[in-house]
């Protein structure tokens, strides 16, 4: 999955490399994301992206959160 998207050079967490921590720079205005602590400046760890349009798995503190592709693509991060 990682290889496939390397060319896209997007800052979205959906295409970011696995097993690294990122700081969120921008996220869609969504109550549920805010509630789960996926807010601007939060530090998250990207675990993996599932194949075939599956969700991205990220870790905020000790909790793992799965985010569907269509939202995850809009969550921007920096290394």
């Amino acid at each position: 999955m990682k290889k496939k998207h390397k060319t896209e050079r997007s800052n979205s967490i959906y295409y970011a490399s696995d097993n690294l921590s990122y700081i969120i720079t921008n996220t869609p205005e969504l109550g549920i994301l805010k509630s789960l602590g996926i807010v601007k400046d939060a530090c998250v760890k990207k675990m993996m992206t599932h194949h075939f349009g599956g969700p991205v798995l990220i870790k905020v503190e000790s909790s793992e959160i799965a985010i569907g592709k269509d939202i995850a693509e809009k969550i921007m991060v920096r290394g």
Binding site: L30, I32, L33, L36, P55, L57, S63, E64, I65, A66, I67, G68, K69, D70, I71, A72
Partner: peptide, 8 residues
């Protein structure tokens, strides 16, 4: 349809 956001 809202995409999935769930805490595991």
């Amino acid at each position: 349809i809202d995409p999935m956001v769930i805490e595991i």
